[in-house]
Computed example of a mutant assay.
Amino acid sequence: MNWPLRQDTAFFPPVAAPRVSGHLDCGDGHQIWWELTGDPAGVPVVVVHGGPGGAIRPYYRRLIDPDRQQGVFFDQRGCGQSLPAGALDRNTTPDLVTDMERLRAHLGFARWIVLGGSWGSTLALAYAQAHPQRVAGLVVSGVYLARPFDQWWWWHGAGHVFPEVFAARDAWLPASERSDPRGAFLRRIRDPDPAIHREAAHVLMMAEGQTLDLWPVAPGEDFAEITDGAVRSARIFAHYEAHDYFLAPDQLLRDAARLAGIPGAIIAGRSDMCTPPQSAWDLAQAWSDARLHIVPAAGHRWNDEQLCRPIIAELARLTGAG
């Protein structure tokens, strides 16, 4: 976030630090970082961050009602405070699904509510379809189904709304590679040589950043500005994108029947240029137990004041507080 929240925000008050936290050994060289906030007796709500390659952000804690809910946060493999940082080996969607189930058992929750946004919605859906008996409720926003359409939109479609941004992105590539920016950027970002992947990561992430908020901040032009953490994030993203997110074609819609009986909500910002509402609509047609909210004048990220309102309201409904 690059600006303070409004005083009349729907967010709950800031939480300075988690109540308890630690690393969970996954047994195959990875240790995932986890945190708990809120009421120890409250309904557990596990928050699944975006990316791939994102991390827990402090303001995510403000989505959780501290008097009725218990927030569960974790950094996915290679992300945030998880170890080893940036690791790509044994880092797949099935591995992350297993980690979530391992974390649930470690914390002693019989069931929990799952909240995921952006790539987090993808992982939340994959987890809920694999372990529906463990999901008391499911809320997803900025829905990304990892279909060819969704990938096309991210690399090409949004360029119809941001023509100057995408043109600048592609102009960085040699003219001979501009017809396939996806392949060109993925090759560079996945290259082990920092002299190759660092600059490519900067260019791609700066372009994406312009699509996430209704009023995005101006992108930086100095390649030295990109942090090591941002480079690791870009490389994890490229790892997943290059492998089609380790999902079978159309898997999340094909297996949506496994969500039957799980109450939930699907939330989309009308002006979300990163994951447009079409995917939310398509999911709603396949998952009849979910409420669909398409929020006017809302964007992609949870720091959007308009987008957060139905998220918080739906979590309250699912925890019996609404």
Rank of each mutant, 00 (worst) to 15 (best):
T92R: 15
I312K: 10
I294T: 14
P296R: 05
H202G: 04
P14V: 11
N303P: 10
D75I: 01
A126L: 02
W152N: 11
I236C: 03
T227Q: 10
G22A: 04
R190P: 06
A280F: 06
D89E: 15
G183D: 00
Q76Y: 01
T93N: 11
L83C: 06
F12P: 01
A146Y: 06
H243C: 01
Y127S: 00
L315F: 01
A126R: 15
P181L: 14
V203Q: 15
P14N: 06
L186W: 07
A200Q: 11
C274W: 07
I196R: 14
I266R: 00
I262A: 12
E305Q: 13
R190E: 14
A126E: 09
W155P: 04
A55Y: 02
G229F: 03
A126D: 08
H156Y: 15
I113G: 09
Q251I: 01
A195E: 14
E241G: 03
V43G: 01
S82G: 09
A298F: 09
Q70N: 11
L145N: 09
C79W: 00
G159T: 08
G80D: 03
N2S: 13
D222C: 03
D28Y: 01
A168K: 12
P249E: 10
G209E: 12
I113M: 11
P277W: 12
A167I: 03
E314N: 05
P13V: 06
Q133F: 04
W302P: 08
A298C: 05
I226Y: 13
R301Q: 08
A110M: 05
Q306M: 08
R77M: 06
L252C: 01
M206K: 13
R90F: 00
G38M: 09
